[in-house]
């Protein structure tokens, strides 16, 4: 804990000034979503809800928002669930089971973690084609989940490492198998980690653009990212209200999740990448 300095109000002001662009940006989004036009940050011609018509009717040839929203939801939830499940199981094994080659797998996880996953897109594209999962939500979910595994395993391993050995030994003497210990004792004990990981992955998957963009072609499988991106090119500056409204709509769930789970996330972002 650093000591307070006398000049902190000055520092705070400086930070505030630096943060103005950020604040301005999000403010613009908010205002634009509800105004006919926005000059700078000023709504011209009063406020309106007309941009939010996308909630009621499809825009052009695009699928209805309900479908897109559902896709995004299924996608983010699916990825989060898969990552939490696979990561915690693998992390438990790497943390607590003794076996030859453990060092190797751990090293592999580390290497993958620092790896530029995105450069594998071409290879991934091909694999999906081979598996017949190209242009399906399921395919992208699997890919996205895999790309998060190194981080997930890394993070959960830290949590499992913290469980006292005596606890596990006691469980074995009590008659539990490793799987029972994992299910009934270890998992409940690492619950904060599971939540943090799940939330983080959900947020990241919710906002993911490149993967669905590259691996999905049919509009019926669109996520909100693709929906919004299709609007970006197609709409005139003067009509940005619609795009802003969709953008705000897209942002809202994450914003809420973030405000609610803020403490959580700060621990995972801070401690999630271990040097």
């Amino acid at each position: 804990m650093m000591p307070r300095t006398r000049f902190w109000p000055l520092l705070a002001f400086g930070l505030f000034v630096l943060s103005l662009p950020l604040l301005a940006g999000y403010l613009w989004l908010l205002v634009s979503a509800f105004s006919f036009q926005v000059h700078g940050l000023k709504p011209m011609g009063g406020l309106t809800l007309e941009h939010w018509r996308f909630l009621l009717e499809p825009i052009g040839q695009r699928p209805p928002i309900g479908r897109v929203l559902l896709n995004s939801f299924v996608y983010a939830l699916g990825v989060a669930f898969l990552v939490v499940l696979a990561s915690s199981m693998a992390a438990y094994a790497l943390s607590r089971l003794a076996f030859r080659g453990r060092g190797f797998y751990l090293g592999l996880v580390l290497v993958l973690h620092a790896f530029p996953a995105v450069s594998l897109l071409i290879g991934i594209f091909y694999v999906l084609q081979l598996l017949g999962l190209f242009d399906t939500l399921a395919g992208v979910i699997l890919v996205q989940a895999s790309l998060f595994l190194p981080l997930g395993i890394w993070l959960m391993k830290g949590f499992f490492d913290a469980i006292p050995w005596d606890l596990e030994r006691a469980a074995l003497v009590d008659g539990a198998s490793r799987w029972i210990f994992f299910l009934r004792i270890a998992l409940p004990l690492v619950r904060p980690g599971l939540f943090a990981l799940g939330t983080f992955v959900f947020i990241a998957a919710w906002g993911e653009f490149i993967l669905p963009y590259t691996l999905i072609v049919s509009s019926r499988a669109w996520t909100l990212a693709l929906y919004l991106q299709s609007l970006l090119g197609a709409v005139d500056l003067a009509d940005y209200g619609l795009v802003a409204a969709v953008g705000l709509f897209y942002l809202l769930p994450v914003l809420v999740l973030f405000l609610v789970g803020q403490r959580f996330l700060l621990t995972i972002y801070g401690g999630g990448v271990k040097g």
């Binding site: 947020i203 906002g207 994450v254």
Partner: peptide, 18 residues
């Protein structure tokens, strides 16, 4: 932290607007 948790498409949208 906001830019990091904002979906890339929305983030770029904001940039374009400003």
């Amino acid at each position: 932290l906001l830019p990091r948790i904002t979906a890339s498409v929305v983030y770029v949208l904001i940039w374009q607007g400003i």
